[in-house]
């Protein structure tokens, strides 16, 4: 069915208005619906990404799921509750990640590929994190070198690992 306003695009918004018992129906495309003002705009926009995320978050508490208690969770720093988070789909402050950790992990597992960051580490804020990551990478490389019998390279890597371990120890 085509939009009754522009007669060009398919009608995807079906809207029934009842004023004083008088019923009028609209079948519009999204674009025309948006142009017709607030009431339609709300209907069209209300199913945004954040609601989808919110739905995903609440899904855990549906029957059949044993969810960790999320109701009372609240971030001490910014005051945002987990309930509020599920509605807006955004955290209030960096500390929310700590405060909501028990509920966060299942969510991250669903929307991300893993729960452990493996990418860039800021030089200043995370210097020890960076060292540990470098160490991990070198150890892997060392194993590979040994497996491929590249012993000279392996010796080099071993020395690098020792140096890093010393730095971390300090």
């Amino acid at each position: 069915m085509l939009c009754q306003n522009c007669h060009e695009r398919p009608a995807t918004v079906h809207f029934t208005k009842i004023v004083n018992g008088e019923k009028s129906e609209y079948r519009l495309c999204e674009q025309c619906a948006r142009e017709r003002g607030d009431i339609f705009a709300k209907a069209v926009n209300s199913f945004g990404f954040n609601h989808l995320l919110g739905g995903l978050l609440n899904f855990e508490s549906s029957p059949g799921f044993t969810a960790p208690a999320g109701k009372g969770l609240r971030c001490d720093v910014c005051g945002m509750t987990y309930q509020q988070f599920t509605q807006v789909g955004q955290f209030g402050c960096p500390s929310c990640y700590e405060h909501f950790a028990p509920r966060l992990e299942p969510l991250l597992r669903r929307i991300q590929s893993a729960v452990q960051h493996t990418g860039k580490v800021p030089a200043r804020t995370g210097s020890h994190v960076k060292l540990r990551k470098d160490l991990e990478r070198l150890r892997k490389e060392l194993q590979q070198c040994v497996a491929n019998e590249q012993f000279e390279r392996a010796a080099e890597i071993r020395d690098q690992i020792r140096a890093l371990e010393q730095q971390l120890g300090q």
């Binding site: 960096p94 700590e98 966060l104 969510l107 929307i111 960051h117 860039k120 580490v121 804020t125 994190v129």
Partner: peptide, 12 residues
């Protein structure tokens, strides 16, 4: 920055 979650952002 968080050791486990990386750079922290408003939306997960």
């Amino acid at each position: 920055f968080h050791e486990r979650y990386g750079y922290l952002t408003a939306c997960p």
